[in-house]
Amino acid sequence: MLKKLRILTVTQHALMLAYRAEIYLWVLAHVMPFLMMGVWVTASRSGAGGAGGGGGMAFALTPVDYARYFVCVFIVRQFSTVWMIHEFEWHIVEGRLSYFLLRPMNPLWNYVTAHLGEQLARFPFFIMVLAFFFILYPQARWMPSASAILLGFFTIYVAFALRFALQYCFAMLTFWFERASAIEQLSFLPYVFLSGLLAPLADFPEPARRIAELTPFPYVLSFPAQILMGQITASSPQLYQGFAVIAAWFAGLCLVGQFLWRRGLRRYSGQGA
């Protein structure tokens, strides 16, 4: 099985290389964290320097930490973005899913390896963007500990799995509705709000933060970002709490996804597609 996955990933990577121009531009299209970084760094600087007369301004992080936080957000997004629903929709509409069904392997793995291959194709450019940033803003440079990197990337892929499971459930709706991706787009809204993309959760007003932490969204972005920057370490209880919440959501989504897949497949084959 592992061998199969490796081979699939390698071929998907080769395929993705053909689209590398698009993929690189796609990296550039995710400048949102850098914009928000600008806003928050400026804000916290004025708070710290007392320029706005705001000694009482309670910013959760220092300017440099804001910069690091948003860089981590950028990194996490690069490795946890999921787009399988668009491909799945296309495969259903064009009737291509049938080819995948003929293979003695769950088509799910095709999509998983496509994402891995794409991340691999994106990697060199991602490194270039990151390097460019640190050259422009050397103060934000830091060397995370080896454990932060290891744990961080582990968490990123856990987050990836969770997002994948979520989108998988939405993708299964394609069996019933033509435009499932439009429905899925709506799930992007709470993501933008609650994941910590626009502001670190620590800066949220208390009730908003509580609500956010009940949803899966902070765990797919802000949580791995905090681990990467070393705010949450192996000794913090938040880590285990976070993994517990992710595991619960993941298990639930898998059950739903599996149920929808079985039902949908019956419908798909029933239509003779």
Binding site: V39, G47, G54, F59, A199
Partner: peptide, 13 residues
Amino acid sequence: LFTLNILYRKGYH
């Protein structure tokens, strides 16, 4: 607006 609000309620503008 939410993000703007977070910033401004801290007294920053």
